[in-house]
Design a protein around this nucleic acid. Structure first.
Lengths: 112, 112
DNA sequence: ACATGAAGTGAAGACTTCTTCAAGTTGTAC
DNA sequence: GTACAACTTGAAGAAGTCTTCACTTCATGT
């Protein structure tokens, strides 16, 4: 009961406010990944990736477990997936509007 | 297409990563508000509120229109509401887990 | 025991975002 | 047109976040 909830929410969204962290969560939404596998899919220095994973761990959005020589990450709850989808819905909506305002071009490919 | 989508998403979440902006969006999820009404509900300086509203406007999450002497704000699309709900779901889930880990206390009031 | 690949950490400078201030609109009432 | 409330803006220092670096840890293979 320490922190007001709207502040906890802001913290939560801050955690998502970084390109590398978004990519990590999108990858982990599909399946678990070892750190070196993430590294193959994200253009980032290893130590930077570790830092970003640490941020996600502190926020309890992901969990890690060691499997022998490698460390595997997965999302802590499937609701993370839902949130990313909800964000995608808004974002594609907004992008379409802005595009229509700018050029009134025809409907484009749905973004991933 | 200029910016990669995962970067647009990160920007989008950054926009939500501020307590005042969360409160604004939560209030506007219920109904439209004039700026001076928001001011009554959020503890913040007027010029700071204007700055935060400008951030939300630039991100196209809210729209404003003048009605005589006052300016009224509303959310640009109802999906904003869905997103806040999705966030709430994750957050209450995570809070419960942390609470259980710490004290193993009984179920608490559902947060707003 | 040593070397190696995999991952994490603390610290420091670069870079962004926040808050506040003073000044500027815009609209209504007198 | 002056006065007032409602609201916005630009700028600047304070505060926070990012990226990188050197170093450490941990497990496996030799």
């Amino acid at each position: 009961m320490g922190v007001p909830l709207y502040q906890a929410k802001a913290e939560f969204f801050k955690t998502l406010g970084h390109p590398a962290r978004i990519r990590i969560l999108e990858l982990l939404s599909e399946r678990e990944y070892a750190v070196h596998e993430l590294l193959e899919n994200i253009t980032i220095e290893p130590s930077n990736l570790s830092q970003q994973l640490a941020v996600l761990r502190r926020a309890s959005l992901v969990v890690s477990h060691r499997q022998g020589g490698e460390v595997t990450y997965s999302i802590s709850t499937p609701e993370v997936r839902d949130l990313l989808l909800a964000a995608r819905a808004i974002l594609t909506g907004l992008l379409h509007v802005q595009e229509d305002e700018a050029t009134s071009a025809p409907a484009s490919d749905p973004p991933r």
